[in-house]
Write a protein that binds this DNA or RNA. Structure first.
Lengths: 187, 187, 187, 187
DNA sequence: CATGAATGAGCATTCATTCAT
DNA sequence: AATGAATGAATGCTCATTCAT
């Protein structure tokens, strides 16, 4: 049974802790205490802490993908939808538990040897680049596929820089600066 | 005695481990074993692991500042010196223990409550932004101080995006893309 | 319902695991996984792991008694039937999951306080001694009952030494040596 | 420092527990509680429980070798020294914590994969066989080396059967029977 | 009769730090 | 200034068993 109420509860609880405190600074004991379950219950649902981490990453990604899709679709087709990425980021930043990008954070916390987690993260980022590319294609589809990809990567880099640095400096200026730069290259 | 041979040896050893494995995944035992010293010796020089972390960050910054300064000064004055930032990053990426930015990594690994480390990191990043601003001033000093700062932040964001993402994707395309974008906004 | 198909399946599965891995190194989870049943199903048939252990010992003994009886009866009446015990042991040793004597193994693994299991094992061994005594009686019945018993115990000791040590040294020399000694005392 | 007071204390404490309760039924917690030390202190002296097991086996063997040597040397040279092996065993049996052979017990408790422990045990047993062979050589040295070895193995098998079965049946008859058999083959 | 889910107590091991010398 | 030894608290994980359905 892949989806159970308890399982979802564990993922939600662990996700909040992993995201706000970090993966290595969150112990299993803290997760079960917060979730109000026994240790063996957790291990009945997940073979190891690493598996909870994967579930955490996937859960974050599902929500993110859904939310950002909905958000950009509220903007007018064209460049505004691309700019909306950064508006979305501002809302994200304003959330009281904002702690940057779960992917970058987790990638940093994991031992290099953990290829499972690394590949999950790389996949999510590549999916995000593809998502940006789609927005670009909608906007100026006269370019070659390769040029669209190049542009998508640049906007992706601006987004990533913005999320990392707004966290580090605890300020929105990186988001504003990235948006400004984004507008410049799309004009 | 702020500077002793043993102290420097500890910092060097710990730095290599912290940088390549991460702060939380590096234990005190590993540091003393690698350094070939007794545990109490380490604690004679540093009150706690956190203090070694500060020394690590400072040590990394001293080297970085010296090296990047030297590197950009080899380029012709003007835009080339700014582009040299990204050339420097490529060399950095090619080093066999490359693991992204020690500041971003450590910021992610530390508990939010640790303001000492957070402030050290923010200071380093602000110093780096100032360094970029100096390069800009040298290049087109006719702009206002505020506009120079805005531009410096944008180039800084490109640099930060490039270092983070080249690590994550294990590829140089983020550096190339950032450099390309940098050239575009300076033309 | 003392004998059900499920019950027998559990005993068979548990027996294989207990014998090859040891009682303490075999978990309930491994048994149910291997048997393909639910945990509660197992506990419907056996009140505790210890009860499965008893069933395991009895099951092993039933098979052993049947097999060794059949085997020695194929030999000519007289001394050959006694020597056949060691020939039987050689065949036992050659089985790919050979792991010595289930009784001695289980006796070693159980806490001293577990008298139920200890008595079951002692009973099986006493039955085996009686079995050997019967073979002796068939052979030279002119001896007193006491002398027959003494002889049976000696042959039993050779058998037990042979099984333990062939396992420990992973070699058949202990069986050969015991057989050789057995022949000497019967000549 | 291979030999420290604490280390010896740990080995002594663990040995008593491993021998009387069994390796798997003795937890690290019980060892440290009985030894009156902190958990990390134990792990400062031994990398793992398995290493304590090796130390336990070696410690038992050192004492055994010393004691049995001293004991047999008190007997008159010749057959008596060989018979003394079984007299020694009787004294061993009478000790209040007698629980059979530590080697056979530990061999049974260990997973098959643990070759380190298995080899240690096999080595001890082979050394013991060599010891018996020496006693035989002293007695009737006119035999070939191979025949002496064959005889040593047989007496060894009697000894091993005696120790295993006196434990299982909680009685000295196996020792008496083995001794009786031993006398028969040496006459 | 069978099940999936839950549990408390326990496991071996590692952590950063302190202390007496 | 340097050390080896000791520590309490926490780590991730497994155990046999129970319970509601």
């Amino acid at each position: 049974m892949r989806h159970s109420k308890v399982r979802d509860h564990i993922v939600t609880t662990a996700s909040n802790l992993f995201y706000s405190k970090g993966y290595n600074l969150t112990g299993i004991n803290e997760i079960i205490k917060e979730a109000g379950i026994a240790k063996a219950t957790l291990y009945n649902h997940f073979p190891s802490k690493e598996d909870i981490c994967i579930a955490y990453l996937q859960s974050k990604n599902v929500t993110f993908t859904k939310d950002i899709n909905a958000f950009v679709n509220e903007a007018a087709p064209g460049k505004d939808r691309i700019y909306a990425l950064f508006e979305f980021l501002k809302l994200f930043f304003d959330q009281k538990d904002f702690n940057g990008c779960w992917c970058l954070n987790t990638y940093t916390e994991m031992p290099k040897e953990n290829e499972t987690v690394r590949e999950e993260i790389q996949q999510q980022k590549n999916d995000f680049i593809d998502f940006i590319k789609e927005l670009i294609v909608e906007n100026h589809s006269q370019e070659s596929d390769n040029e669209n990809m190049m542009l998508a990567r640049k906007i992706y880099l601006l987004y990533e820089g913005a999320i990392s640095e707004s966290k580090l400096h605890q300020n929105t200026w990186p988001i504003e600066a990235s948006l400004s730069l984004c507008k410049k290259i799309l004009e």
